[in-house]
Amino acid sequence: MRVTIKDIAKYCGVSSGTVDRALNNRPGIKEKTKQKVLQAAKDLKYRPDFTARSLVKGRTMTLGIVLFDLYNRSYAQLLTAVELKAREYGYFLYIALTDKDMENEKQCIEYLANHKVDGIILFSVNKGTEFEEYLHGFSIPIITIFNFLSADWEYVGIPERAAMKNGVSHIIDKGYKQFIYISPPLKYKGITNIYTQEERLQGFLEALASNDLKEAEIIRHNDYLDYLEKINFRQRERTAIICSCDLYALEVMRFLKTKGYSIPLDVGIMGFDNIDVLKYVTPALTTIEYPVEAIGDKAVESLVHKIEKGSYITKENTELSYRFIAGESI
Rank of each mutant, 00 (worst) to 15 (best):
E31D: 03
K32I: 13
T33I: 04
T33E: 05
K34A: 06
Q35M: 12
K36D: 11
K36W: 09
V37C: 00
Q39K: 15
A41M: 01
A41E: 00
A41W: 02
K42A: 10
K42N: 15
K42C: 08
K45Q: 13
R47A: 14
R47I: 15
F50N: 13
F50D: 11
T51C: 07
A52V: 07
R53D: 09
R53C: 11
R53P: 07
S54M: 07
S54T: 05
K57R: 13
R59S: 13
T60H: 01
M61R: 02
M61E: 12
T62W: 05
T62Q: 10
V66I: 11
L67F: 09
F68R: 13
F68W: 13
D69Q: 05
R73N: 14
R73E: 15
Y75Q: 10
Y75F: 15
A76H: 04
Q77A: 10
L78I: 08
L79N: 00
L79K: 00
T80P: 02
T80Q: 14
A81P: 13
V82C: 02
E83L: 08
E83H: 09
A86N: 06
R87H: 12
Y89W: 08
Y89N: 06
G90D: 06
Y91V: 03
Y91I: 04
Y91H: 04
Y91C: 00
F92C: 13
F92M: 14
F92S: 15
L93N: 10
Y94P: 04
I95N: 08
L97M: 10
L97Q: 01
L97C: 01
D99V: 03
D99Y: 09
D99A: 11
K100C: 08
D101G: 05
D101S: 08
M102H: 00
N104H: 05
N104C: 00
E105C: 04
K106P: 01
Q107R: 15
E110P: 02
Y111N: 06
Y111K: 08
L112C: 06
N114L: 11
N114S: 12
N114K: 11
K116F: 11
V117N: 04
D118P: 06
I120C: 12
I121T: 03
L122Q: 04
F123V: 08
S124W: 04
V125R: 01
N126R: 02
N126E: 02
K127V: 02
K127H: 10
E130P: 00
F131K: 12
F131N: 05
F131H: 10
E132L: 05
E132N: 08
Y134P: 12
F138I: 03
F138W: 09
F138M: 06
P141L: 02
I142A: 09
I145V: 15
I145E: 06
F146Y: 15
F146C: 12
F146E: 15
F146D: 14
F146Q: 15
F146V: 15
N147K: 03
D152Y: 07
W153G: 00
W153I: 02
Y155T: 02
G157K: 03
I158M: 10
P159F: 07
